[in-house]
Design a protein around this nucleic acid. Structure first.
Lengths: 198, 198, 198, 198
DNA sequence: TATGAATGAGGGTTCATTCAT
DNA sequence: AATGAATGAACCCTCATTCAT
């Protein structure tokens, strides 16, 4: 089924744009269909219902992030692994700003639509990040007087806030050097506070 | 009219709870009325429509925060002023966890319902925090190689993420010593990274 | 109860204006109360309900017209009696354009709110006018080959259409000579067609 | 789309009946749906809202009338053109008494729902009728001492009043000879008063 | 696969009317 | 006599979802 996946992607892409503009609640199936250039009845051949579209979007986001993080676990140093997370957000933002927008505005904070599955993604993300921090603490790269989980909060908090600010002002990231500058800013500020001092 | 304000508060309190549970979109006027123990139509004596209730909640949040921040501007040192912000969130969370929940999930990130007025509140918040950072930079308390606005991002990012985490797990804050511990954690981690080194 | 009637008039006067602007359905009790400068609860001391206000307005219109027509029955010639009807409309229009507007737009044609009582007024109006026509036929002043009822139709049709046109364009009648000119136009055109020819 | 128009007609037909019974304001969308034998929401596939249904009904009435009047302009004599108007009303009344009822009770007099578009229809109707009268005056068929616009008032006033009376008493028009009798009554009475005398 | 007509539950809002004060 | 808070039925409109074609 090659075509099937393409069509699903077409729908998800359209859904992304509409949800970005109107939010999940405000996004109507008819809007999504129109944006995708198909009839709205057809959406139901590919997705059980509106919820399923949202789930697919969420899943897409997390799966990519997890894959990227896990790939680095074996052979990456702490800096590289943290940078990896940052770049996942920044690259995603560059290529699919709508997706990041939705992550920031609809996924990352909402307790409303939170179900077991979605909560699970978060926990996993926290755990994967915790593991980086714990590795850093263990190898004496990061300070040892703060719990890994707290470092995770600081790191992800800073990252999210930066990205949120970019989302809010619709910052363009076409210039790669700007992207690198932002990435290292986030990293350095965090490390400055979190690195072990001698 | 003394009674009028009381009734409005009653409605806002009810709305707070309902919105927390179901989100702004999911909250039905009927739910709010039931929760407030009043009849359906009465809400419309006090608020023009559903939007107005949301606005009132938002306004209440920001006005309190601004008042608190401005009161400290004259005579507070940097540490105190930052702690003041942290405590505003933590105290609010302790006394009105629903309000903080809504701030985190519905206000602080949503670009959907963002209008000029609401965006204005954010900008003001950023500016007031920037001013603290700039004062800290000017008096050589904070490091001078990072822009005030970036320090603001880090600080608010960490704060929001901590509070978000508390919201997500419905952390109870009945014990004041826990509150103080969290407050100083946030502050110290931030300062550790942001303070000027000799 | 002297005051009572004054207050009722105050309310009716206000109702007149509001109904003119918004129609009977669009007129809200709150609008009427505001226009009358009283609280809306008070209206219910003077009128049973909204319907009763409408009834009072209708009654006011018809009673005045009937009184005027009956007073002329004994001693008026045909021309005078017809002019009397015309002048009742034109004078009413001059002094209370809102009332005439409502008669034209809400009373004279609506079959919707038509109940026995209101239909009765119409029938009485038709009968009183028929009687003039019949008298005119009997005394050989009006042509005898057309039924009195048909002459009534023509006459009232012309009158209503003139007044309707004035209502539609919000014609001012401050100048009495204009009023007289219109009155005689209506009468002459009618008589020209209806008078007996030798 | 052939079916689409049929469905729209079905809805308009139902709306006609309901509005006749309850007036525009009193007519509920649910009533119309029930009368049309379709589901509630389907109406909104065909009409934007209640107002649009009313507009469609009004448009239908006027367009038919204008088409008929314009078709006669070139080659009709004055009598025929006036009879044409009369027959448009009487035929419409015979075939769609509800439509005529609504024209008389809701359209022809109401200043409440009058907007630019609707007022425009009236003006056009008046102008087209004026033109007949002016042609009649120019060719010395009608009297020359009365303005065309006044003749229009008389004519349309008589016509409307006749039809109104039929509407009020729910007169049946199944017998064509009755229709012809009424038509010539209206015309003769008008012409009797309006025709030029030698 | 594809369309869009059809369904109907649901929710925001209005407003006449009642009633405690 | 006067106020306006309180009630709740009513109604328009939306939109996710189903289904016949």
């Amino acid at each position: 089924m090659y075509k099937k996946e393409e069509k699903e992607d077409l729908i998800l892409e359209a859904a992304l744009k509409v949800i970005k503009e109107k939010g999940f609640h405000g996004a109507r199936m008819a809007d999504i269909a129109r944006k995708a250039g198909i009839s709205y009845g057809l959406i139901y051949h590919y997705f059980k219902n509106k919820e399923a579209i949202f789930d697919a979007i969420i899943k897409r986001w997390w799966k990519g992030l997890f894959r990227s993080m896990e790939a680095m676990e074996e052979n990456g140093d702490i800096r590289s692994r943290l940078l990896n997370i940052i770049y996942y957000f920044l690259n995603a933002y560059k290529e699919q700003p709508d997706l990041v927008n939705i992550f920031i505005t609809e996924i990352s904070r909402s307790t409303v639509n939170l179900n077991e599955e979605r909560l699970g993604y978060f926990k996993r993300f926290m755990e994967l990040t915790d593991r980086i921090m714990q590795d850093g603490i263990d190898c004496a790269y990061l300070r040892q007087d703060i719990k890994a989980r707290y470092l995770t909060y600081i790191f992800l908090g800073a990252l999210e806030t930066f990205v949120s600010a970019m989302v809010l002002v619709s910052q363009r990231l076409e210039d790669d050097s700007l992207k690198h500058r932002i990435a290292s800013s986030i990293l350095e500020v965090f490390l400055n506070g979190a690195r072990k001092r001698e």
